[in-house]
Amino acid sequence: MAQAISTRSLTKKFGRREVLHGVDFAVEAGSVFGVIGPNGAGKTTTMRCLLDIIRPTSGEVRVLGKDPRAGGPQLRRRIGYLPGELFLEGRVTGRTLLAHYQAISGPVAPGRIDALAERLGLDLDSHTRKLSKGNKQKLGLVQAFMHDPELLVLDEPTSGLDPLVQQEFHAMMREAQHKGQTIFLSSHVLSEVQQTADTVAILRDGRIIAVESVSGLREGAVRRVRFTANGTTAHDAGALLGGVPGVGHVEVLESGGSITLSATVEGAIQPLVRALGTLELTDLVLEEPDLEESVLKMYSSPADTGPADAGQREAAR
């Protein structure tokens, strides 16, 4: 099977309010697919449709080759799900709770739960309602991963996790991918998705507005370049850089015989490197591309295609 998930013209109405207006995407089996979008864009609703928690108003959904509703319990045993908001109440220990979820999900290898809990630094013997948000999230991750499902559907998986645990979680995702598992995850920030995902879909107001491979985003991404050079003038350096395709926002400072120039570079960097080779550089910084900026270009309206400034970034989040 080539596609682990596919949706076609998926719509969902709650009463009169339509929250998904025809969502189309496909997730290749064995890949990591990230959906990003602001809160309320429809990420959680889409995920719930995959698990038959919510029934689509129209359109077609296929998960592991089956319709979620027709697939029933057999299909859901092959999926690991982490809900966006995890509520665990009751006076039971994490171990007891996981034993319960084990009884209603796919087969769990012996020792798997303890191994996962140890990796994430989760104490299985404390009561679930006394756990902090981060520890509840770890418990949720353990229940999603423990039966090594073919498909993992993770809604905001790193929310509440501290950076070290996030790294461990990223390692778990890579291992899952090596084992051939497919991962479908959501986030409201790209930085989280870009580290792990192969493909990113941008969901906004109930529509997929772009599906890009992360490497494609990287190519189209905007980098910042900053260098200091001797033996040239601000005018000459500016003219040199201005002739390089993809360079914009050039700013030059001249002081005491050297100049400091900063600019943005879009697309290929080879022409820029060639141009820089003619200069007597004393310092050079070429930053890693900020995918967030290239994505935000897609978020913003077509009329406004310039690099987003900080204000727009905050607004778009």
Partner: peptide
Amino acid sequence: ESGQLELTLAHGVT
């Protein structure tokens, strides 16, 4: 209402 039914239903139960 407490949000726990969603996770139960995401498992292998009807």
